[in-house]
Design a protein around this nucleic acid. Structure first.
Lengths: 233, 233, 233, 233
DNA sequence: GATGAATGAGGATTCATTCAT
DNA sequence: TATGAATGAATCCTCATTCAT
């Protein structure tokens, strides 16, 4: 993991520290920050192109136009790159869409909320194709991968947050489960959406929305005193 | 499929070498057949342990207790192993559960049909953990892998077949799309199911069933002139 | 060779040896001989296709339609195959063209003799493309290869024989040297001839003849009292 | 040529690391350059020992005393090594003997010119035994190898250049053909020369000269108005 | 920080050869 | 004889990582 924002010792060799910026060490940080961004962008490209497992650190360095040594000056290994990349993605998602996946007015109809969330989710993926690669991660279920897991956890908690306003009475366990199911459906749907184009893609988007709305609808029945809500419980 | 084109299988062979020696002149094929089975079992283990991408042919050979050369006498490469493995899995699924995923009596309620299919699907996966690894395949979306694709296609067509009896009026395109969605939901749900145990696992099984039933229910409402389409309860 | 050529190989059950051919053991030999021929033909194909060094015994066996084990029943290794192949080629050459490369009437003009020899040599090569492969052999000069050397020696002695009638007064050492030069030029020319087609090929054939005639002409000058044989001095 | 595109060679570097450090910032390239030289020398040894086809990259790395990985940092494969090696040989030949194989004074007698060229050619080969290995290349005629072809083309064009001053009136096609023949004879003769030692070697050298002179003599008859031009007939 | 050279174990795959049947 | 399975060392090449400069 790259140096956390501060944490940045002036290190050795101080020959160009003369010009009086208010924080001379900042300079260093800025350059390092640029390198990191550069590397992460390269990693994003490589991950989405070849997949996480098959991606090589050398390939990432090459794509970034730096030497392998440089890469290892900022990241201790491939995993760390993925983690940081996931982190930044999550931050960007938060910055772009706010704390919850969608601002939920309690009276927003479910379809609308789900529809908006799906749209945003897909948009985000189209702008950041790595997202998909990281979310699927190394193709083994048991193998726990920090990067993948962190991303997953973040997404999960966001969805949980979103759902909690729709399902205020659900038990935590149920909420967690429902959020997992939604995330799973999201991922599955996303794969189908990305695999198609044009009208067919739109059809899959709609299908994903349908699946989610229908899945959630019976659960939110109690909201606003809807009378028919008979669900699994 | 291993490259030797004879394929004169002694009929009665299962996973082990019990079968008697009816045809002495062809005994050595039997040894090869056994090796193939053994290699495929080893591959299954390795694939499920490390994932398809990270699995190495040497690891498979080692797991099977043979030399790398032996593996290559039967399979030209990793992909071929996966293909054959997928093939055999599909055959076994067919042998176990019949041509369609479930025999569908037109009056079978949707829940029942879906429930049974899900149960079987999950059972099958528990008995053949490779299935999961093969279904997820290499972690890149674009990269087409024959093995993965073949498996996918087979599953998809089976689901389509199953659905077609429920949705006799759906257009082919809709049917295909719906089947894809179901398969995606299946896969997503399976991942969750396998990630849990005991009661929690059961809860996820139920959740998967719910998701599928609710997704499909509005589509099959017209079946048998049901006017009210109220399902889950 | 009583076995009909159908390839019916009943293999290891010896009940049909009763019918009294005059030499029962002959049977075996005949079959073996056929196998050997078959293998040598396959080897010829593989050698000319991939070159001697890159040719593999497995490939030869496959090309011959037999198992590797069978190949090793007749030849102890790749080298032995090449040797036998070279041997048979030499015999065939002898059978086809007689003991010397050309029947040399002492009054045959040099051009005619050389021309005929070149033609035959090239014809032979076109009918037996392995010849070229074997003659070039493994691409190292020092590495002594029995097959290649035997072939070379045979060719050399044939050329020597041919030359001796033209150069009756040459010392053995000179004769040997001249024969080596001729063989070298032959080989070099052959390579060029084979690399071209049509008219260009013919031009190279002519060029090869020219080179040889001009090279030899001064040496045979004394024959028939030709007066002009002044060469390099 | 090794893949690093900078190539900012400090000019004065020979086989060893004498040159001073004018450009400190680029010193590490020098190490790489040294490695490349070292690898090429090792390759030269291996190629001449085992032949191009049988040479293995691992053997080259071993001979150079480095790990296989290091070799691949500079060359993508065996072929590339051969190409670079051939390139450097051609450059060295040019540096040593000038642009044409020999500076041709129009009045130089043919024997003299050919004799000098042959001497140089053979000397060069004795100092660079790889040359032979590269020139013979992979032992299959059809298989085109860049390295071998490049070397051949260079040599051919040099010979063509040399010949053109002797045969100013020859058509391009004839010139090309004649050059090919000369090169072929050179190669064949070289093989014989290298296969012998002492006086016998000298005898072969002489024989090669004879063959070439006699081959070319009738073609250059017209030069300087020599009236006696007796050619092929 | 930055470079690029270096590593060596490990990847897939092939091959000459042997062996049980 | 013939088969084809088996071998294991050797092939080429890649990769994550380290290190001297």
């Amino acid at each position: 993991m790259p140096d956390s924002p501060e944490k940045q010792a002036p290190e050795s060799q101080g020959q160009d520290e003369q010009q009086g910026q208010e924080q001379p060490p900042r300079r260093r940080q800025a350059r390092g920050e640029r390198r990191i961004t550069q590397l992460l962008e390269a990693a994003a490209t490589v991950f989405s192109t070849t997949g996480y497992t098959a991606a090589s650190t050398n390939a990432i360095a090459r794509e970034a136009g730096v030497s392998p040594g440089t890469l290892y000056q900022f990241f201790p290994n491939k995993e760390a790159i993925a983690i940081e990349l996931g982190d930044r993605l999550m931050h960007e998602m938060r910055d772009t869409y706010g704390e919850a996946l969608a601002p939920i007015d309690p009276v927003t109809p479910l379809e609308e909320a789900v529809g908006a969330a799906v749209e945003r989710f897909i948009d985000f993926n189209c702008q950041h194709p790595v997202f998909f690669a990281l979310m699927h991660g190394p193709d083994v279920p048991g193998r726990i991968t920090e990067a993948h897991d962190a991303l997953h956890a973040t997404l999960h908690s966001r969805i949980e947050g979103l759902l909690s306003s729709f399902l205020p009475d659900a038990s935590p366990a149920d909420l967690t489960r429902t959020a997992h199911m939604c995330l799973g459906m999201y991922k599955a749907g996303l794969e189908l959406v990305l695999a198609h184009e044009g009208a067919e893609r739109e059809a899959y988007v709609q299908e994903l929305k349908n699946a989610l709305v229908r899945y959630l609808d019976p659960l939110v029945g109690e909201r606003l005193g809807r009378p028919d809500a008979t669900t699994t419980a």
